[in-house]
Amino acid sequence: MSFLEVNNIDVYYGDVQVIFNLSMKVEEGEVVSIIGSNGAGKSTLLKTISGLMHPAKGEILFEDSFVQSAPPEDMVERGVTQVPEGRRLFMLMSVKDNLIVGAYNSRAGRHMNATLEEVYALLPKLQEREDQLAITLSGGEQQMVAVGRGLMAKPKLLMLDEPSLGLAPILIKDIFQTVRKIADQGTTVLLVEQDVKHSLSLSDRGYVLEHGRIAMEGPANELLDDPHIKTAYLGL
């Protein structure tokens, strides 16, 4: 059995089907990328895993238990944390309060102070800014807070939804380095990205999502060399 297993799910937004009979899996300790263009269903897939949406058909297993109908707070408690697209910080709360709220679940709550120190060690900028309101930070700093807030939940599986969205190239590099560091510390990472080159080069495996279906899958370096991916996503 895999760490996370998605079996034949269909997901709808109202009447519109977004994901068709999709299956995928993530093993413990892996970094997996899901790449694809706008509207391919990447974010929907993450939202379905994190419990914000529920599949109409199929099942999702996390650590061998069925979780396809679990609400998001339940998934966080189990160890699945999503860093949402567009950061979604609590804008009128301080950076520190944002991080503390991240450790709301009972598993993480017990170790909050220790985790806070780990997050500050990984992202020292956040400690400098801890008393500032989140709304006053720059985009890159806000993304760091979002990632730090996700880490505060002590996730077993950290899912990042387009962490590079809207950031300058130099900051994108920073973000991906941080993701690599998080993975090296032993957290399993599921990364959804449009920045195919960066995300695949730090991943172990990748899935290519097209029109709500898995179009390709395989080891990340093979995908990077694939002629279809080169023309369709890398513009080579």
Binding site: L52, P72, E73, V76, R88, L89, F90, L92, M93, Y104
Partner: peptide
């Protein structure tokens, strides 16, 4: 802890539920 969760929920319900609230 609950107070912060209340503030977080008032600012962004969906993000709050992703924090386990």
């Amino acid at each position: 802890r609950t107070g912060r969760a209340i503030r977080a929920t008032s600012l962004d319900r969906e993000a709050a539920s992703l924090m386990g609230i």
